[in-house]
Design a protein around this nucleic acid. Structure first.
Lengths: 106, 106
DNA sequence: AACTTGGGAAACCAATCGGTTGCAAATATA
DNA sequence: TATATTTGCAACCGATTGGTTTCCCAAGTT
């Protein structure tokens, strides 16, 4: 069972859940109200998000509040870093950059 | 057929392909040499990446050079923006922030 | 013209996905 | 104690995924 952040955010419903609880921790029932799926469907998404540690549980009586592990989101940012370097230096002129790199390699 | 960037980067091989051709445009055969799969397997990944416009083809004789559409990568960055706001303002104290938001909503 | 090379498309396969229904466990309430 | 609520988990289902093999076509090469 592959379980990494990128696969977790591949599903649009999961991205919506992340955005939803980013502002405020919520229970599965409360989250499910925002979507067209069943509570169990949302629960499965929450399990996936929990497994890759993008969210964490907080027990309060019989209710469970899910909240975003914002630090985990930084891993996506970290991956983007290598590309940010590219698009920041080239100012929309990828072709020129590639030409330069090619020339250097020769 | 769902075809968006997030689903495209969900696969580790595709992420590797992206990183590979970010530096230099490459042909399918050259790309396939870096992986354990067949050329046709890589070709399928390239098709998916092309469909969501993360990469583009450039014909040179009978060879096809694939190169990264770095601008498309910015869409991931854009999605991350909303969360960057959160982790930049809180300095590792999500709990405090959530408490504040909850209080404001009351 | 015949052959080789680079590459895409189709058919097929096991594995996984996202969703549902049904159930069990635990907490709260009467 | 009996009942209702909140939740997770397992089983099942059709659709999709990632991969392979096979085939075809276009462009060079001999």
């Amino acid at each position: 069972m592959r379980r990494d952040i990128f696969q977790a955010i591949a599903d649009p419903t999961r991205r919506a859940i992340i955005a939803l609880i980013a502002l405020q921790a919520m229970t599965p029932n409360a989250i499910a109200e925002h979507f067209d799926t069943t509570r169990q469907g949302v629960s499965k998404h929450l399990r996936i998000l929990t497994e890759c540690e993008l969210i964490k549980k907080e027990y309060k009586g019989r209710e469970i509040y899910y909240q975003l592990e914002i630090n985990k989101m930084k891993e996506i940012d970290k991956w983007l870093e290598q590309f940010r370097k590219i698009w920041e230096t080239r100012f929309n002129q990828l072709d020129d950059l590639l030409a330069t790199i090619k020339k250097q390699k020769k």
